[in-house]
Design a protein around this nucleic acid. Sequence first.
DNA 1: TATTGTTATACTCTATAACTATA
DNA 2: TATAGTTATAGAGTATAACAATA
Lengths: 146, 146
Amino acid sequence: MTDQLIQRGLAQSRRLARLIVLLADRSREEFAVAIAPFGLPVPVARTLMVLSGPTPMNEMAGHLGYDPSYVTGLADQLEQRGLATRVPGKDRRIKMLQPTAEGHALRTRIMHAVDAAGAFAQSLSPAERDTLGELLERLLDPTATK
Amino acid sequence: MTDQLIQRGLAQSRRLARLIVLLADRSREEFAVAIAPFGLPVPVARTLMVLSGPTPMNEMAGHLGYDPSYVTGLADQLEQRGLATRVPGKDRRIKMLQPTAEGHALRTRIMHAVDAAGAFAQSLSPAERDTLGELLERLLDPTATK
DNA sequence: TATTGTTATACTCTATAACTATA
DNA sequence: TATAGTTATAGAGTATAACAATA
């Protein structure tokens, strides 16, 4: 590969990276706006989104990409608002976070609000969305075959 | 459109949004790792990256997506490190931030390091990168034709 | 009166380190 | 001794409000 081609590839990479970061920022922004009416801080709402059923605190941290110590505080806030409760696991070191009925209902409402706000990919055809998804996945995991 | 199709479109949108946010996080992480050896805090390095020539503080804030009040502090740090200087603009309300020779040299070195670290889109062919770029741009600006 | 930049301050998000309880 | 969770704390990144200087 000539130097020129390498240069071009790098410029292209930078452009893609910039686009992706811009889109991610917009996505975050849309999420923040969509959840504002519900009065939950963003990380608390994120936590609720991930809470589809009883889940070990441990695992929550993994899903969210947070440190477990941070999840403790988020779980506290969900409990204080009556949206989740801590229930003991079989192994008594483990605590499961479990959405209450109210928590589950709110989660559903928020998901709909987020969907409505994010007309996100509506400017692309279904086929284009498929293509985009595939390309993004290969970017995320270069070993992915298909 | 049937409810089912709408559902599918929304699930697809969510998936795309998730992929984009994950990739953006990785990109940020790669940037942070790449610049670590240079000893600049991330926002300061970001500011230097954007500083290709004399630029009004105002405009810097726009490029970076920061509030002007925040850019003041970043410019201070670049000045303290001898990487940029403030020079007056024609309109004397305006201050231009300008990279020093040292700042320009460091900027170049950091850009190379970031390029090297981000083997970012190297898993895609040039044609695929083009396709990806086009789709992302249409996502960012749905009115963009081509 | 509107605009550029600055100061002082405060807030949000998140991690690290040290600890407790259980295994 | 290792693992799950918690507590207290500290740090990074960023915005808001009030202000000064210039237009």
